[in-house]
């Protein structure tokens, strides 16, 4: 009897305790900042609850234009990445395993080189052709595609190489030619990887202003840059927070579209 009581009093380490470190991290670096953003977004400078920040954002052409440009640039980048990455991932996935590892490595390696360094190097290259100064938006898109391409290749490769070959064989057996096999079977079954890749490219594109600063000669402002300005030089945390809040909503909606919250285990491919 006494023994049992003792056991209950003492601290026993269970699996649940393993998540303490992350729980602390979650509270301080995720939940609290989120609460702060929501608080600032829905209050005025005097501290009263109001919607004036939202009214400011949607009545200012400059901010709406920035939002639209960000979305446009990100969509274009994502689309180009997809166009380049899909065939590459497809070929890599179909190769004999010893060859594709090396090639996949070549595609993934840039991810290991410092991101800013990579951007600077690409900028120098584009400068040689005079693209940077003449075409700010074009060079921004080139920079984004260059930087985010590996993030599209990897999930596509994973999905395509895990795709059971017997599906394609079955389709071909049932009378589908190579084009039909791709459009009716391979592509629909790789949508998980496509969505995964889109999420991994589209969302960072919206906010990562290092690329637009480097490649756009300071003339391309994306929504991330806008937030930074209001928190920094603009010194209005309420405006900054409202933009961040709107961005969260947009991201939430886009994730809904790409099936990120779907329960179906097939809908999401593996990412990194």
């Amino acid at each position: 009897m006494e023994n049992e009581v003792k056991v209950k009093k003492g601290f026993s380490f269970t699996r649940a305790h393993l998540c303490f470190p992350y729980a602390i991290f979650l509270v301080f670096f995720v939940i609290l900042p989120l609460i702060l953003i929501v608080y600032y977004a829905f209050t005025s400078k005097s501290g009263r609850i109001s919607f004036e920040n939202f009214i400011w954002f949607f009545s200012s052409w400059a901010s709406i234009k920035t939002l639209l440009i960000s979305i446009g640039l990100s969509l274009l980048t994502t689309f180009i990445c997809l166009l380049i990455a899909y065939p590459v991932a497809f070929i890599l996935a179909r190769m004999k395993s010893n060859k594709n590892v090396i090639l996949l490595f070549l595609f993934i390696m840039p991810m290991w080189i410092n991101f800013v360094l990579r951007a600077m190097a690409m900028k120098e290259l584009l400068d040689l052709f005079g693209i940077i100064t003449k075409y700010n938006y074009l060079s921004t898109v080139i920079g984004m595609v260059y930087d985010y391409l590996p993030f599209m290749v990897l999930p596509l490769f994973t999905t395509l190489s895990n795709l059971d070959k017997s599906y394609e064989e079955a389709a071909s057996d049932l009378g589908a030619n190579k084009v039909k096999v791709f459009t009716k079977i391979t592509f629909p079954l790789s949508l998980a990887g496509v969505f995964s890749g889109i999420t991994m490219v589209f969302l960072p594109c919206m906010t990562c202003y290092v690329i637009s600063d480097t490649f756009g000669s300071g003339k391309v402002t994306i929504i991330g840059k806008f937030i930074e300005q209001w928190f920094g030089t603009g010194d209005n945390w309420h405006y900054g927070s409202v933009i961040a809040f709107i961005l969260i909503v947009i991201m939430f909606i886009s994730t809904l579209f790409t099936g990120g919250f779907s329960e179906d285990k097939n809908s999401r491919g593996t990412t990194l």
């Binding site: 059971d164 017997s166 599906y167 064989e169 079955a170 389709a171 071909s172 057996d173 049932l174 009378g175 589908a176 030619n177 009716k184 079977i185 629909p188 079954l189 097939n266």
Partner: peptide, 30 residues
């Protein structure tokens, strides 16, 4: 001759039913 040109059909070991299609569309595929 590629498989799609042969009047031969296969029942696969692990069935290989298309997971993104319902039963009707699976059967009607051919």
């Amino acid at each position: 001759l590629p498989p799609n040109k042969r009047p031969i059909n296969t029942v696969f070991q692990r069935y290989a039913l298309f997971p993104h299609l319902n039963i009707f569309d699976n059967i009607a595929f051919g």
